[in-house]
Design a protein around this nucleic acid. Structure first.
Lengths: 339, 339
DNA sequence: TTGTAAGCGTTATCAA
DNA sequence: TTGATAACGCTTACAA
């Protein structure tokens, strides 16, 4: 491992000069600059992140964490993982500013962003897909704040990172699994949080796309449950009454899943309806144990939290830029035995 | 974040003294020692790993990597992940000594261990379950070399780390999945690498345990394929001829899986036999695409490689001891859509 | 028994 | 335009 000092010695200059060249701070004679660059390349110089980490303490690196997540079970695990990472990276001097919001209020989200802005060098957030949020994110990026979108991406903003899953593929995977569980075919009911949530819509699209052209399978209806268990219970009950021929359910969002399952039970359909859900939140694990939910697509919430924090840490503390912008988790399949 | 210097100042001693106390190097007056310990606890002192990492370069930390893995597809991904980690951690000065073995020869393994011993501070290995290997590992541990077993654990040795999966649970998960695919029941054939490989045996046990008591399912026979495709092809062909009533196959090891699948195809049973396999190596993905393999249990080879390297890095370079000894990956389920 | 000083690799400040 | 120096937090050899 070659160091700045070694390059300096070999080029007959001081460490300061080498540093200026490597970090393009200017104020170096072009010929020396060229010599140093070549030497660095020849010796395959890579900065030691430990050295950078030590120095980075002087900038007091701070990451803001902004999640509209209160009461959303899925985020409990994301947050837990982030808390662990916070502890780990805190040892290096990385500080975190947490803001867990209750509900998806765009105005409130923007206000909190404004509040965080002066005190953070990076921001991890679960963005709402709204023009005002987009503009706010662009401001952050323009001001050199490193932005990581987690769980939901937001399109049309400048360079940022996304950590999350491929929703369309999640729906496809669920559909393919359903076909394996019900080789004879099925009449399917879908519940979804809201079509205005991009991810939910994409899951439904993926699901339908995979079934398309196979006439053993038909989707009878899709119901929005607003991520609310009570509402989900009512709507699902109505759905099952209107369509008693339903033999499978696809729960494309975990928010109202508990209500959906309770409706299936109360209609005494829990033994004959095949249910595929998303996320292994406690309510869904409970319904797996009861035999109501057959399988769940797992979005690796812990990995999402870890990855988001790690990207920020590497950037802020170790001075390492991520080598790609998209960090997509697999849609794994969980059943009772491997939950 | 409190530093050694701050503790030293508050206790009216020098950094050296604080260091001696915190790292129990002795040669400190008991009363001062007590004072320093209390202060450190009170201020919740945690050493900055970046400082440690920098210092660690003076010990030239080296990890040995010893895998009897040549030609075993599963390990290709483990190794790829380790290579990436090698690059990442190499920036901090961690060096790696690789030894990829061809086959499972105990004598050769021990010889390579002896050869590595003088030059490494840590060893990652896929151990063979043999008394001589056990003794050799104990020697390493006695001499202060940090040992990480990967993919296969070895029992009866001193304190070490294990990174791998829960084989029994893998078998259970496969069986539960099979039950969902074949609700009407199935006559099952099992192939396994070798019963003398602990993991393979445990998978078979887990598989059988979950089916036990359900008389819709019966295991007709288990065949060992020696992780050899040709042999697997022959044995499976014979199996399918002897038991044409077989309607499901459980491939408990990926070594000979390609041969097994080819036998299923050549017997023209690929459309009516449900196949559950292990690992998503290229041969199995190919067989998924052909519709032969329905699902595979995924052992997270990449995560295994990363984790093993990370544990060594944290220990050797950052001076962080792992907080547990067992690092168990989930047995996830993969089908064609999420492979 | 204790303190001092040097060094790990990087960056920043200041003086030349 | 450049070099010297100090600093980040930790360890360690050596001197006191």
């Amino acid at each position: 491992m070659v160091t700045i000092k070694q390059i300096a010695d070999m080029c007959g200059v001081s460490r300061g000069t080498v540093d200026r060249v490597l970090n393009q701070r200017g104020n170096v004679k072009p010929e020396k600059s060229r010599l140093i660059m070549e030497m660095a390349k020849k010796l395959n110089y890579k900065p030691n992140p430990a050295g950078k980490a030590l120095v980075s303490r002087r900038n007091r690196p701070v990451v803001g964490i902004l999640l509209p997540a209160k009461g959303i079970s899925f985020f409990d695990e994301v947050i837990m993982a982030m808390r662990l990472s916070e502890k780990k990276y805190g040892l290096f001097g990385l500080k975190s500013e947490w803001r867990i919001m209750d509900g998806y209020d765009v105005g409130k989200l923007c206000a909190i962003m404004d509040e965080l802005k002066p005190s953070v060098n990076a921001l991890i957030l679960n963005p709402i897909n709204d023009e005002r949020v987009r503009r706010k994110i662009d401001q952050f990026i323009d001001d050199g704040i490193f932005v990581v979108a987690v769980n939901n991406d937001i399109e049309g903003v400048k360079a940022h990172q996304y950590v999350g899953s491929d929703y369309f593929n999640g729906g496809q995977t669920a559909a393919a699994l359903l076909k394996m569980f019900c080789p004879a075919g099925a009449k399917i009911g879908i519940t979804i949080g809201s079509r205005s949530v991009l991810g939910h819509k994409q899951r439904e699209q993926g699901f339908r796309a995979l079934l398309k052209g196979d006439d053993r399978f038909s989707v009878l209806m899709t119901e929005e449950d607003r991520d609310d268990d009570i509402y989900a219970f009512e709507r699902t009950t109505a759905m099952l009454k209107a369509h008693p021929e339903i033999s499978a359910m696809f729960l494309a969002a975990s928010g109202g899943a508990y209500g959906v399952c309770r409706a299936i039970i109360s209609q005494k359909r829990d033994q004959d309806i095949t249910v595929i859900a998303f996320d292994t939140i406690p309510a869904i694990v409970e319904m797996m144990q009861k035999g109501v939910v057959n399988a769940a697509i797992y979005q690796h919430p812990r990995q999402q939290g870890e990855k988001a924090m790690q990207i920020v840490f590497d950037y802020l503390v170790n001075g390492i830029k991520p080598d790609h912008d998209l960090h997509i988790m697999k849609n794994d399949i969980r059943i009772l035995q491997n939950v």
